[in-house]
Amino acid sequence: MLPFVYNALPARVIFGTGTLAQVVQELRNLGCSRAVVLTTPHQVEQGKAVKNLLGDLCVGLYTKATMHTPTDITDAAVSAVQELHADCLVAVGGGSTIGLGKAIALRTDLPQIVVPTTYAGSEATPIIGQTEDGVKTTQKTLKVLPEVIVYDVDLTLTLPSKMSVTSGVNAIAHAVEALYSKEANPVVNLLAQEGIKAIASALPIIIHERDTPSLREARSGALYGAWACGTCLGAVGMSLHHKLCHTLGGTFNLPHAETHTVILPHAIAYNTPYAADAIAKVASSLGVTNAAQGIFDLAKTLGGPYSLKELGMKEADLEKAADIAVRSPYPNPAPLEREKLLELLRNAWAGTRPE
């Protein structure tokens, strides 16, 4: 056994069906009584339901969470939270809402309860990404790690098919990069393989057997996999895949989960010659022999996006994206060479199946 270091993150996790009702007691356990509920404009009704559930323990509902966590939105949200004299944040939604909760917590130190409704996984991490003037940056600090995560399978039953695929592959990306991270360790390796297998097994059932009794079990498996993959993301550093996705999202405003879905097969192919053992674990968890092709085929056959072109990326911007991606060094199994990165981006733009 090789030596390793593993840091467990201090978060409380509640997983099950009908667990949303436990948010009230969790709020009290934190000693809080003036919560603000956060959502995106598209999830206002879910936010209202949680606000009603909390009753007098809730002092407001803020519904302007936005993709890539723009700092101007955070500015306005912090002002609103402070005017309400809030003592806790309850984020209900996916990565956009969770990101806003983290951004507010970074500035105010308010405790967070997160109720995920997608498979984003960011709720399990002390990582925040923020966008200012077209540039997305990330930082890692325990100040943004939610105190409590409440996973309720019921809240994912109506997650649209395409969003299920893209947020699921987004979660898988966390586990893939954890396996070849420089901080990889046996604990994270087990979680990563478990998470990949759980999500990859669940997604075909979610898409093709939507009205069968097996749907709830598949939704439960996918949500469990999302927690496992998100925990990997929080425990170790990420590499090329996440760097490219942050570049494409922050600078070119491409949708977050969809971009992860398109880029992941190509990032795997780029790193495979330099991380053969880790990528073999990915392939085994997927039940395939070629991990890059396995991810590509999984997303495409389930109706997910597979080209940057269909996400609105301009071919003329690929050069700029490659320049940004190599601007600051970061750990990655394969050397970061601009021309090879540009080739990766061109293949991803065209939707070419990895070799």
Rank of each mutant, 00 (worst) to 15 (best):
H242L: 10
H242Q: 07
C245G: 01
H246Y: 07
T247S: 08
T247I: 15
L248R: 05
L248K: 10
G249Y: 04
T251C: 09
F252E: 01
N253A: 11
N253F: 03
L254W: 07
L254E: 14
L254P: 06
P255G: 10
H260V: 14
I263R: 00
I263V: 15
L264F: 09
L264M: 13
P265N: 04
H266L: 09
A267E: 12
A267N: 10
A269E: 14
P273Y: 09
Y274V: 07
A278S: 14
K281C: 13
V282K: 06
V282F: 08
S284F: 01
S284E: 13
L286Y: 04
L286D: 02
L286G: 07
T289G: 02
T289K: 13
N290W: 01
N290F: 05
A291S: 08
A291E: 03
A291H: 00
A292Y: 02
Q293L: 10
G294A: 12
G294E: 07
F296Q: 00
D297Y: 02
A299G: 11
A299S: 15
K300W: 03
T301P: 05
T301E: 13
L302T: 01
G303F: 09
G304L: 07
P305C: 12
P305W: 06
Y306L: 07
S307R: 03
S307G: 04
L308Q: 03
K309H: 13
E310D: 13
M313Q: 00
K314V: 08
E315R: 14
A316M: 02
D317L: 00
D317R: 02
D317P: 00
D317G: 00
D317M: 08
L318Q: 01
L318C: 14
E319D: 12
K320R: 13
A322W: 13
D323S: 12
D323K: 11
A325D: 08
A325P: 02
A325S: 15
A325C: 11
A325E: 04
A325T: 15
V326G: 06
V326N: 06
R327F: 11
P329C: 01
P329H: 10
P329T: 10
Y330A: 04
N332S: 03
A334W: 08
A334T: 14
P335W: 02
P335K: 05
L336N: 02
L336P: 02
E337A: 08
E339R: 10
E339Q: 14
